[in-house]
Amino acid sequence: MSSTNNETKVYGMLAEYDNADALIAGIKKAKEAGYTKLDGYSPYAVSGIADALGFIKSEMATVMLCGGICGAICGFLMQYYTNAVDYPFNIGGKPYNSWPMFIPVTYEPGILTTCLAGVFGLLALCGLPKLYNPLFNVPAFERSTIDRFFLFVQANDEKFDLQATREFLLTLNPLSVAEVPE
């Protein structure tokens, strides 16, 4: 972790842009320069940012699939236990484990847990809830939800150097470059 002269820890460096194309171009140049721990912030979803950052695949699909399978198995076992083990009841001469009738109820918790896994998985993967985010120490960052685009270089990037990174970001033609104190 880097420090300023008065020993305040630095969380990273933030470059501000006024359009998405400039941000995407900045991310690409930073990647070419060897920076790996980058992030991009925009007031609306811009798919090119994820591509430029190299987010090839989201883990959400796996998380939701696992959640759904767990829910479906639990739903089926719940019915099996109730109908075939705990309270066996002859209905129309059908077997106690009347599995064709269990499928709709198996499906429902499957869908429910898929959605729950989606919601909570997304929060977990995004690191939320986050009660304190150092990025808000930079006043300009408030406009990230209004009309500004930000490129963030983390201080724990191997290539990060306070002075060199500032100078590099200035070559990317941002509106401003700011240190992010931790």
């Binding site: 059908k94 009738m101 499928i103 709709p104």
Partner: peptide
């Protein structure tokens, strides 16, 4: 297809 099977199963 499953719905047809299930309804026939249930109706018996």
């Amino acid at each position: 297809t499953y719905s047809q099977f299930m309804l026939v199963w249930a109706g018996n």
